[in-house]
Design a binder for these strands. Structure first.
Length: 556
RNA sequence: UACCCGGUAGUGUAAUGGCAACACUAGAGAUUUUGAUUCUCUCAUUGGAGGUUCGAGUCCUCCCCGGGUAACCA
């Protein structure tokens, strides 16, 4: 059990919150959700689900109209729901509390704990001091309560321009915690809000708003990321001074993954500079990108469960994520044969017009998935990399004079290699053994490998998009002076193959359908699919021992 | 240089003061009509130095290292 669940369990035991467990996931609708957010909402919704009567609110922290948009509100709901979580009727918006927050601000002014300050942003920075030097009091700090009250209401009424003045908490300008040096509670922003329209021209800042949102909703455990640790004294201060329901803020480390970036700012940059194709580009760690790539919600949830929760920054090896998808897809995806880089093969001793429909198992891990028929004929395609004219010792696949098994079909032996004028192999000729139908040899002879194939006459054409890590470096932020993370973008993150051959059973495949292409990996139908052309995204390759052998061979 | 937080295999997460465990990765082997899956095996004295204790990853002290913080962002 992680340290947060330990706290929750202990609170339940001592009846600190009368046995209630209320958490919340409070995204700002200024971008798409990524797997780092998944870690957070799986934690929050997970804890709520694990506790009798517990609940988790989905709350949009929409306190900054200049960055937020309704389309993000929609995508966030879609993503959380797709991941399998349900907030029931507990969908909230910080903007719904603006009136209440205003009232609380007036209370603080009345207590002499907040004041309107006319210092401009630059001056305020100067007065704030530095990490090592204390700040000094604003000249407006001792303004009378009446005057602040008057000014604050005029701020709200729109009498002042943006930046003319702010409402600040009156705390301690010499606090070693910069957050406590009279923090800004309200700023003037004549901006249209995606929900409240032009009702407001003052907007609460995060620190002021967030604790109130939690408090108003009766949240018990307010779980956030580590960078808010320094803000906790302020979170506590506001709620203490207001003497209202006071949830416990608990911080945990945000998720970092190798070979990718997670900050919204960087993701936004990749999207806006068109270095990827939108927020749902399958190379991005966004939920929508991963969905499009073929990740299942179950695999992402399992990943979030396995990485645990901690209080220090760590970077998870993306191999763990890949392991989680493979593990889930291995159990759930139907197998199918597809040839990505086709090499034509003719069986010389197979009857010209004959076709046979072979029995194939849909999913060896799931007997209930049943079987299907796969058409076989004289001419078919195999993978280019499944043939070598001059094979090294450890290569088990097809080679001149060598016999291999065509999965679910026959044993074939390569008898001839046809090349074009450039010496490129364009076609293979084979002979087959009619007694090995289905792939069994009555005489018990063995072959060293089984390869996949697709009958030429029956094949469907497809485009397949192969994805690799978005960045070439484990830590894309590691760059030389003056360079930024984008120099580490991988030129090989996407390879598109447009002449792939797939089994006819895929003709009715729909976007988001997932399959295992035998011996290749897991693939997912893309939304770009049309009646003429099916498009697949490669989610992840199968584990590939042969590729490893080749790699170590190259090193030697 | 101030304050806050944190350091356990390559990576990540465990261990009422009582034999450092699990997963991923990597390597070796077995099985296999997917070089997949599955199965077996291998890989550490917990940042350092003291101290308390019969006994310390765990408690105390000092040191070292890493992260965060100076938006009218969240």
């Amino acid at each position: 059990m992680d340290f947060i669940r330990t706290i929750v369990a202990e609170d339940n035991r001592t009846k600190k919150w009368n046995g209630e467990v209320i958490t919340r996931f409070p995204p700002e609708p200024n971008g798409f959700l990524h797997i780092g957010h998944a870690k957070s909402f799986c934690l929050n919704f997970g804890i709520a689900a694990e506790n009798e009567g517990g609940r988790c609110h989905l709350r949009f922290d929409d306190t900054n109209p200049v960055k937020e948009e309704a389309r993000y509100v929609e995508s966030i709901q879609e993503d959380v729901r797709w991941m399998g979580w349900d907030w029931n009727e507990h969908l909230y918006y910080a903007s719904d509390y603006f009136d209440q927050m205003y009232g609380y601000a007036v209370q603080l002014i009345n207590k002499g704990l907040a004041y309107v300050c006319d210092l401009n942003a630059e001056m305020m920075r100067e007065y704030r001091g530095t990490l090592t030097a204390p700040g000094k009091d604003s000249p407006y700090r001792n303004r009378s309560i009446e005057e602040s009250l008057d000014l604050f209401s005029r701020m709200k009424e729109g009498e002042f321009k943006d930046g003319h003045c702010v409402l600040r908490g009156r705390i301690d300008m010499s606090s070693p915690n910069l957050n406590m040096r009279d923090p800004v509670m309200y700023r003037i922003l004549h901006a249209e809000h995606h929900r409240t329209g032009n009702k407001w021209c003052i907007y609460p800042t995060y620190d002021w708003a967030h604790g109130l949102e939690d408090s108003i909703e009766g949240v018990t455990h307010s779980i956030c990321t580590l960078e808010f640790e320094n803000h906790r004294p302020l979170y506590d201060w506001y709620l203490d001074k207001l003497e209202v329901h006071h949830p416990q803020q608990i911080e945990f480390a945000r998720l970092e993954l190798t070979y990718t970036v997670m900050s919204k700012r960087k993701l936004l940059q990749l999207v806006e500079e068109e270095l990827v194709k939108g927020w749902d580009d399958p190379r991005l760690p966004t939920i929508s990108g991963m969905r499009r790539r073929g990740y299942s919600p179950e695999s992402i949830r399992e990943f979030c469960r396995r990485i645990g929760v901690n209080k220090f920054n760590s970077t998870i090896d993306i191999a763990l994520l890949e392991h989680c998808v493979r593990e889930d897809l291995n159990k759930t995806s139907n197998r199918v044969m597809a040839v990505l880089r086709p090499l034509r093969v003719v069986i010389d001793n197979y009857p010209e017009e004959q076709e046979e429909w072979m029995d194939a198992v849909n999913n060896p891990e799931e007997p209930e998935a049943g079987t299907r028929k796969v058409p076989f004929s004289k001419v078919f395609y195999i993978e280019q990399e499944d043939f070598m004219e001059d094979p090294p010792k450890k290569f088990f696949r097809l080679a001149p004079g060598r016999e291999v098994r065509l999965r679910y079909a026959y044993f074939v032996t390569c008898t001839d290699v046809v090349k074009d004028d450039n010496g490129q192999i364009v076609e293979l000729h084979c002979s087959y053994d009619p007694d090995t139908r289905g792939g069994n040899s009555p005489d018990g002879r063995k072959v060293k490998s089984t390869i996949h194939w697709v009958s030429e006459a029956h094949a469907l054409r497809a485009e397949v998009r192969l994805y690799d890590h978005l960045f070439t470096k484990e830590h894309p932020e590691d760059t030389a002076e003056g360079e930024d993370f984008k120099v580490n973008l991988s030129p090989e993150s996407l390879k598109t193959l447009s002449d792939c051959m797939i089994e006819p059973c895929l003709k009715d495949a729909r976007p988001l359908d997932r399959f295992q292409f035998e011996r290749l990996g897991y693939f997912c139908v893309d939304a770009d699919t049309t009646k003429e052309k099916i498009v697949f995204n490669r989610t992840v390759t199968l584990r590939d021992t042969w590729a490893k052998i080749q790699k170590t061979g190259q090193k030697k």
